[in-house]
Computed example of a mutant assay.
Amino acid sequence: MESWNRMSTDAVRTHTTDGVNRRIDERVEECVRHMAEQDRAAITQYLDKLEREWDLNRMVSVTASAVTVLGLVLGVKGGRGWRVMSGVAAGLLLQHGLLGFGPVAELVRVLGVRTRREIDLEKFALKALRGDFERIPHDGGPLARANAALVAAQS
């Protein structure tokens, strides 16, 4: 199944290599297929876990902010180099905020951190499997239900 994830306007996906995007998409597909065989309680439990998952923007913001604060604190005793590190981290955070992507996001993305849209896509697919939406067929087996849920989550 290759065409279910059509988020081409997403700056992060656009700037991420196809291999990384594919790996993230495959992880979602595998999870949704697995959950298609589970009961409502298991799906609800996994949805709760997804609600707590940090997205790429949060990860980049926290990382850049932590490096900025660390550089400022160490700069008080350690000299100018640490303050420069703070400036670079703040600049990278600004770049990410303005462009929606940057070097820190690229690094975090390679580690498998997903965008909010990607997390929401998985959540909507799982909610569809759980029966929250009427468009998902209840026949055809787990694979057909998983595919229909992923397509419904995009629409």
Rank of each mutant, 00 (worst) to 15 (best):
E2S: 15
E2K: 15
W4I: 02
W4C: 06
N5M: 09
N5Y: 12
N5P: 10
R6E: 15
D10S: 11
A11Q: 06
A11R: 04
V12A: 06
V12P: 01
V12E: 04
R13T: 06
R13G: 05
T14F: 09
T14D: 10
D18Y: 14
V20W: 02
V20A: 03
V20F: 00
R27M: 09
E29H: 13
E30L: 11
M35Y: 05
R40Y: 10
R40F: 09
A41W: 12
T44N: 15
Y46Q: 12
L47P: 05
D48K: 11
K49R: 14
E51D: 13
E53K: 03
W54F: 08
D55N: 15
D55I: 10
L56Q: 00
N57S: 15
T63K: 07
T63F: 00
T63S: 07
V67H: 09
L70Y: 11
V73R: 10
L74F: 08
G75R: 09
K77D: 10
G79E: 07
W82Q: 02
W82K: 02
M85S: 09
M85N: 04
S86A: 13
S86L: 01
G87K: 08
G87T: 05
V88I: 12
V88T: 05
G91H: 00
G91P: 06
L92Y: 01
Q95R: 03
Q95V: 03
L99S: 15
L99I: 15
L99G: 11
G102W: 00
G102R: 01
P103L: 06
V104Y: 04
L107K: 10
V108H: 03
V108D: 00
R109W: 01
R109Y: 04
V110A: 15
L111N: 13
L111K: 13
T115G: 02
I119A: 04
D120L: 03
L121S: 08
E122L: 05
K123A: 02
F124Q: 11
A128S: 14
A128V: 07
L129N: 03
D132I: 06
F133L: 10
I136F: 03
I136Y: 02
P137Q: 14
G140W: 06
L143A: 14
A146T: 01
A146P: 00
A146F: 03
N147G: 09
A148L: 00
A148W: 03
L150T: 06
A153V: 04
